[in-house]
Nucleic acid binder design. Structure first.
Lengths: 194, 194
DNA sequence: CTATTTTATTAAACCAGTTTAACGGGTTTG
DNA sequence: CAAACCCGTTAAACTGGTTTAATAAAATAG
């Protein structure tokens, strides 16, 4: 039997949901196990699932002229998907790839939509989790607008230090919007100043 | 009598809402008229309203060391607010200022939340509008990650040409993440190449 | 345990955009 | 209508990052 405890608590952290409804919902979340390097989504596919990351790390990125451009790193206890592909049912241009052995729960779009229709409580959960996702993304835009590369590097080091253990440096560089060479120079500069 | 036609159609573009419920909701949207330069929100205040922009242009920005950092321009037929302040009920650090004579409809947070509680249809509207806002913001992050300043300038020129008529150039520059000087050089470079 | 691939650093030349400052055209205001 | 301010451009010196390439170190596979 799949253990949905963390996912259950995550949903309940947004709003109250009657136990019967929530249990009926959770049956539809399938467990997916990914080995390091496995792909959840690749360009050309249409994303029709929404995910909850139970354990591991997933990299959300694009390839442009053979270069990787990291959009986000997903780690424990977050929801994710390629929302543009999911909502518009268009082929994606992104990858979702496991950077380590990973376990996610996945729900099918049709199932999720039916749940939202049938339960006001789940619809509210949907709204509030989307609202939270928006706010997180917004603070990211704020940082990209207001802060220098150096400030953003230091902030990432402070806020998500575990990322630097789990993820190769050139992906961190890409996430920060610089080249590996640029990151190397930045680190050196910081080291000699401090 | 206030004319809520555009706002009504906007809400209905997301999902079906029974006429009685929608009409009952719209009474709570108050009309606010702003002269050019008027402020809807300033740092230190807590935002407790959600807005729909009926006519005009509002600039959402921060001040940092006396410098303006534009986060977004809102124009006709969009919803907006300072969501972080609105949701967390914290003092804002942003401005919402009219760049021209502007008319918005505003709904109070408590009223909006009550509506979401009382109507599953309005809750769905809330979820779907938030989802759309997320997707728009996400494509912005994508562009900031993937595109050069020049590409982003050309895209803005193509997608929102009216902005260049309505908004001073130094605010456009700020929105693109460069200085007025930088924008000037960029334009010159484009002019001599083309 | 060696060979291969992947990842990180460094150097050197280069470039897009910054900072500072000056100038000039436009527009508002008294 | 003159004064003041706002705004956009230009110039010059500078800087933080890029590109390319070489090398070294670490991880992975055979």
């Amino acid at each position: 039997m799949k253990n949905h405890t963390n996912l259950r608590n995550k949903i309940l952290s947004y709003t109250q949901v009657d136990d019967e409804i929530l249990t009926g919902e959770l049956v539809h979340y399938d467990q997916i196990l990914l080995a390091k390097g496995d792909t959840l989504l690749a360009p050309g596919k249409v994303e029709n699932r929404f995910y909850y990351l139970e354990k591991g790390c997933v990299c959300y990125y694009k390839e442009q002229d053979g270069e990787i451009k990291v959009l986000e790193f997903y780690t424990e206890d977050v929801f994710f998907t390629d929302l543009l592909s999911y909502v518009n049912e268009e082929t994606s241009s992104c990858y979702l790839k496991a950077l380590e052995d990973t376990m996610v729960f996945a729900v099918n779009k049709k199932v999720a939509e039916t749940s939202f229709e049938n339960s006001h409580q789940l619809e509210r959960f949907g709204r509030l989790s989307m609202q939270e996702a928006f706010m997180k993304l917004f603070t990211r835009v704020e940082r990209m607008t207001l802060r220098s590369n150096e400030e953003r590097y230091l902030r990432l080091l402070e806020k998500r230090p575990e990322l630097f253990q789990r993820v190769p440096n050139y992906l961190i560089a890409s996430y920060l919007g610089i080249t590996p060479v640029g990151l190397s120079k930045l680190r050196k500069r910081l080291a000699t100043v401090g």
